[in-house]
Simulated assay, not measured.
Amino acid sequence: MAETITYLRGDATAPRGKGPRVIAHVCNDLGGWGKGFVLALSRRWPEPEAAYRRWHRERSRNDFALGALQLVQVTPHLWVANMIGQRGTRTARSTGVPVRYEAIDAALARLAPEARRLGASVHMPRIGCGLAGGKWERIEPLITARLTDQGIPVTVYDHG
């Protein structure tokens, strides 16, 4: 049965509700972790950053690339989903935006069976829309198609 996205004001690093939960967010493909939502994650748990940096460092031997997904367990019933959905980072000289919608779509497609296996709901900020420069009108339909239409509950948190 299809779900709809729930929108709440609050902190995506403190997902509401009962049962297993996954916090999904977008990472870049450069191994950089130091701006935006990842800082809030790192203030709560060291494991997602350490796992992401290790994943990037060992990328010649794993699946680290645009569209990839890494699930990192941080408590008995909570995981962080590092999703590679951003090509590089924004710099003063860069033109265009780092977000890659097709990579976010691919990572969400990989997340769906994992969330189902865990019996988990998915929680996130407006992924791809901060430093990645994406537009929510393009990302929301991907979340609907890959997660909520598959019966996976999703909560999106707006800070404030």
Rank of each mutant, 00 (worst) to 15 (best):
T155I: 08
R117M: 06
A65Y: 10
G128M: 12
Q86R: 04
G119I: 09
T4N: 15
K18Q: 11
G130W: 01
K35G: 08
S42Y: 09
P141Q: 07
R116W: 07
G133D: 00
A24R: 03
V26C: 06
K18F: 11
R117F: 08
R138S: 01
H123W: 06
R100D: 00
Q86N: 12
I139A: 05
R61T: 13
W45M: 15
G96L: 10
G88Q: 04
K18G: 11
V74L: 14
K35V: 06
L111Y: 02
L8D: 07
E58F: 09
Q86K: 05
A65G: 13
E49Y: 07
M124P: 02
D105C: 03
Y101L: 15
W55M: 12
G128P: 08
R93Q: 08
T89V: 08
S60R: 15
A12E: 11
G10L: 05
F64M: 04
E49V: 07
G96N: 13
H123V: 08
V154E: 01
L111K: 04
A112N: 10
V22R: 15
D149M: 05
R57S: 15
I104F: 03
T155A: 11
D158S: 08
D63P: 13
R53G: 08
P125Q: 05
A115W: 08
I84K: 03
S121Q: 11
P113N: 12
N62A: 12
A24F: 10
V22Y: 13
F37G: 08
A51D: 14
Q150Y: 04
R43M: 06
R100K: 04
L8T: 07
H123G: 10
I139M: 02
P76S: 09
Y157L: 09
A81R: 06
L147C: 00
P15T: 09
R53S: 03
S121R: 06
I152P: 04
C129A: 02
L8Y: 01
P153M: 06
Q86T: 05
L118T: 03
R87L: 10
T144W: 00
